[in-house]
Design a protein around this nucleic acid. Structure first.
Length: 492
RNA sequence: UCCCUGGUAGCUCAAUCGGCAGAGCGGGUGGCUGUUAACCACUAGGUUGGCGGUUCAAGUCCGUCCCAGGGAGCCA
């Protein structure tokens, strides 16, 4: 056995955390785990005579008679400095302990005489768990995001990506907490769908038919031979399912994977992403906007309150204006502006836009960025769009030309949230679908909602990765999801 | 998919007008009694993205393909 894990385990089950007082925010597993978490050690409020920690070596600084190891176990951003004196058990293994190796250290937690850390561990025993050779690709100096994407399996071991995925986990938790606290029920919308008109982009087809010999009949695919007996796809939205559940449970939300087969190659699109879709019965567009604003604000507040240490890294190294942005989102009301007014603002902005401005034109990226970054200098909700540029299910306004839709635009990212009041009037919805040439019989269950006890209802979709980009300042969606899926990229 | 910019050592980057392929980090060896991007000395490490062309001579110029990043469209 190459490592000393077995040998090190010879003194397993000793009470290694005597005098241990866990700090407030760290994971508290010490009662069931043999090892202490580095988060708890570096945030300790008293010395400890003996702890056992395990982690990955970030750097080693050697002298003739002693060495410093910095190890990280993912429990927090900070590394733990370990001092190893010549002669302690495991000293002879030090040449095998290069950056990236996993090790186990038993030692005393003592005040550090050096600068840069309050506590350090004076090793009583060091054991190699798994070596990492000199070809280990991560070094302690800075790497580019592009390079780290090529080693997505190892990048969580860097400060930046470790912090990112800790924040991602905590924000996912915060989303569930938020909805739970506001009377929303989580619903699990289907991932595989038979409705090919969910209305939001190209879909990935799901099939068990042999692609090299698809069964044909008069040139057409015999879908009755396919798994479901009809065409099937991965979901592009949980909205239709959420609407049905909302019209029974009142307030619901989905938080699940979403798939778009668009050939988009941009820093804010992925083929597989996670979307949060609340849906409320007995609600108007104003309620919808209130919810979107409060949700985004709450997430910013949660991050500021619960991810301060990790966020500080992004404020320092990734996006210098991050803290100002988050404070702004957390405290100031968002701007709300009807679409028609937004077009007027753009028209008299004096800006030379590449795309035309005026009623009936869609808001382009350049327009969104002007509104939120320059004109409002804050998140802005644009609402009441012309019906022609929005989806069939959005509620017709009394003016007959706009629908009760809203987009929440934020600096740097653009559209973070898109939502609407849903058309609950059967005759209006039916007429609209007819205008668009949609097969109503395929939506019989969706129309049934309007037939039986219909209620005004509203909801929206928020891309979780885009929320993370806002919260962390990271500028590419491929870096806020551990293993991104984009066109021509299915590594890992 | 379109437009722009790139691709040089394991990583981050230099290389003047077309004229000998370089540094830092990382690795190895040796030194150093408190380091923290440790330090000092020595050392190994290259098909300059691929293919073709121009030239006495190509990392550098031309063509083409591949890959990456940014911008745009589509959207969350």
């Amino acid at each position: 056995m190459p490592g000393g894990y077995g040998a090190g385990a010879s003194r397993q089950a000793h009470p290694h955390v005597r005098g241990f007082r866990p700090c407030g925010h760290a994971l508290k597993k010490e009662s069931i785990m043999q090892r202490a978490l580095i988060a708890d050690v570096v945030h300790a409020d008293a010395p400890m005579e003996s702890v056992t920690v395990m982690g990955w070596v970030r750097t080693k600084r050697e002298s003739k008679d002693f060495a410093f190891l910095e190890i990280n176990d993912g429990s927090c951003l900070k590394n733990l400095q370990v001092v190893v004196d010549a002669g302690v058990p495991g000293w002879e293994d030090l040449p095998r302990i290069l950056t990236g190796a996993s090790i186990q250290v038993r030692g005393a937690v003592v005040p550090s005489p050096g600068k840069g850390q309050r506590w350090e561990v004076r090793a009583q025993e060091v054991a190699v768990i798994g070596e990492a050779g000199p070809e280990y690709p991560l070094q302690k100096k800075r790497h580019t995001d592009e390079f780290l994407r090529t080693i997505a399996h190892l990048r969580p071991r860097t400060n930046k990506y470790g912090a990112l995925y800790r924040i991602r986990a905590r924000l996912a938790h915060a989303v569930h907490q938020y909805f739970h606290d506001h009377g929303f029920y989580l619903v699990h919308a289907p991932i595989i769908t038979g409705s090919d008109c969910e209305g939001a982009g190209e879909m990935f087809q799901v099939t068990t038919l042999p692609l090299e010999a698809v069964p044909l009949e008069k040139g057409a695919v015999r879908y009755e031979d396919d798994f479901f007996g009809r065409p099937a796809s991965l979901t592009v939205s949980g909205q239709l399912a959420a609407e049905n559940l909302a019209c029974a449970l009142g307030r619901v939300y989905t938080f699940g994977p979403t798939f778009r087969a668009e050939n988009s190659n941009t820093p804010k699109h992925a083929a597989e992403f996670w979307m949060i879709e609340p849906e409320m019965a007995f609600a108007t567009l104003a309620d919808d906007m209130d919810l979107a604003e409060d949700l985004v604000r709450s997430m910013a507040r949660y991050a500021l309150a619960h991810c301060a240490e990790d966020l500080a890294l992004f404020a320092q190294f990734v996006e210098p204006t991050l803290m100002a942005t988050l404070e702004n989102v957390a405290t100031k009301p968002f701007v709300r502006m009807p679409y028609a007014e937004a077009m007027e603002v753009l028209g008299r902005s004096g800006k030379e836009f590449q795309f035309p401005v005026g009623f009936g034109h869609d808001l382009q990226t350049e327009h969104e960025r002007y509104l939120t970054e320059e004109y409002c200098k804050a998140p802005v909700i644009v609402y009441d769009y012309p019906k022609e540029i929005k989806a069939f299910y959005m509620r017709m306004n009394d003016d007959g030309r706009t629908v009760a839709a809203m987009d929440l635009l934020v600096p740097r990212i653009g559209e973070l949230v898109g939502g609407s009041a849903r058309e609950e009037r059967l005759d209006v919805l039916s007429r609209r679908m007819e205008e668009l040439g949609m097969p109503q019989e395929e939506y019989w269950w969706y129309l049934d909602l309007r037939r039986f006890g219909t209620v005004p209802h509203a909801g929206f979709g928020m891309g979780f990765e885009r929320l993370l980009m806002l919260i962390t300042g990271v500028s590419n969606i491929r870096d806020v999801i551990p293993f991104p899926r984009t066109p021509k990229h299915l590594e890992f």
